[in-house]
Design a protein around this nucleic acid. Structure first.
Lengths: 232, 232
DNA sequence: TGAAAAACCCGACATAAGTCGGAGCGCGAA
DNA sequence: TTCGCGCTCCGACTTATGTCGGGTTTTTCA
């Protein structure tokens, strides 16, 4: 992980491209440019630890992360994957709470850190930005509600089927370096062996097909049935 | 469930007592008083349904609620209990998302409904209120993260032990009408039979004692061990 | 390029959790 | 008071999930 200041004008240009800041005027942005910090995280490096009180808002410019909690016996539960263009750590920066989970880079990731004071200034002048943050948090609450109820009420097979249906573009899911069974299992709240068994089952039933590069849905209707989607 | 307008001056007096609105000036509050609606919900009545797009912010003046999702086979997962003085449905009112869960009154409950437009006015003038809402949402995110990871990584026994330790004042938990095994099981993400088994186990081990009115912790250290608290 | 590490596979087994039948209790409505 | 329903309890059973040992394949990187 290394940290490097970037000339303010270049930064300003970049800030304008952020979804999250789209509505702000030039002046506000250039103030921001002066206080934001740019960091690059190596694959597998920790962006922040559970328990940290991290007072920056993060904006993921490129790369991807996982947010997780782990148990003493080594199992981990992935709570969320973070993709390009997302902001995170609202909890730490605005509510001043210790972060409830750990964030780890899945690949090399470039992240902007926006310090609390800068953010608070923006909010006090642009309530619309506050609303955007609130909407982001609402989405996270919805996702966590889904996660919790799925963990409680659905089988591993159903959760996996659901995940496939969500992720598929057309009927194919591209597998990336970190879309391996270990990570998928952590995401689903189980262990690799169990997932492997589930995959075997779905493959035998000719609902899916899987190789190193892709997962292909062969029978969407059948998969939907396994996902128990009737009641969502 | 019945709905009754209340003379604005009485209402105004009440609004001032809300934690949530403490910092607002008289004028803002009296505007609010004109648009807020008061409702009383009978025990077991539904405050809102999953899937509803409910555009009011709720403030629970007295009573208590449970927020839950249920599966087609009748099992339910309680996501949260709501107690006096809490606000809820930020998701519905501010993010305009369909509500992800259902809320049901556990006992007779009196609730203020604050319509979206009134809330948005307050926020635009008092950014501090926006911050309070954000902090509330952050707390909910933290709670949901705990719930999800506990469901994934802990046993029913550990979750129950944890709940007892959290809820106990001194070493005693007062049982209310709805603190029965059915509700507790739904809260813990399991079924009454399993919880009953767990209670038997903890009672035999002389860690707790339970009757109709109370749950008593006999051995806090032992219970903490069962709750697997080392790593939280 | 070759060795070590990581991922994956699979059957056998262990354990946590869910289900079922049946029975007792207590409370509230008729 | 009696009836019936819902809560509680309990043992026996099933099922989902996790664990282990051992193997093969793939990836990594020195």
């Amino acid at each position: 992980m290394n940290s490097q200041p970037i000339a303010s004008d270049i930064l300003l240009k970049r800030l304008k491209t952020f979804d999250f800041l789209k509505e702000l005027d030039n002046e506000t942005l250039s103030t921001l440019a002066k206080s934001a910090v740019w960091k690059v995280f190596a694959p597998d490096s920790v962006v922040f630890w559970e328990g940290d009180t991290e007072t920056n808002l993060y904006y993921l410019q490129y790369g991807s992360l996982k947010v997780l909690k782990s148990s003493p016996d080594g199992r981990e539960q992935v709570l969320k994957f973070i993709e390009t263009d997302e902001i995170f750590n609202e909890v730490g920066v605005l509510a001043k709470r210790p972060n409830p989970a750990t964030a780890i880079a899945l690949e090399e990731s470039g992240i902007w850190l926006i310090p609390r004071h800068a953010l608070e200034e923006i909010i006090s002048v642009h309530p619309r930005t506050a609303m955007q943050i609130i909407e982001n948090m609402a989405d996270k609450i919805i996702e966590l509600v889904m996660l919790a109820t799925d963990l409680s009420l659905k089988t591993v097979e159903a959760r996996f089927a659901e995940l496939l249906l969500e992720q598929a573009e057309g009927d194919v899911i591209e597998r990336r370096r970190w879309t391996n069974q270990t990570e998928l299992a952590a995401r689903l709240g189980t262990v690799p062996d169990v997932l492997s068994r589930v995959i075997r089952g779905l493959t035998k039933a000719e609902l899916i097909e899987m190789d190193k590069q892709h997962i292909r849905i062969l029978d969407r209707a059948g998969l939907e049935e396994r996902a128990m989607l009737q009641w969502k």
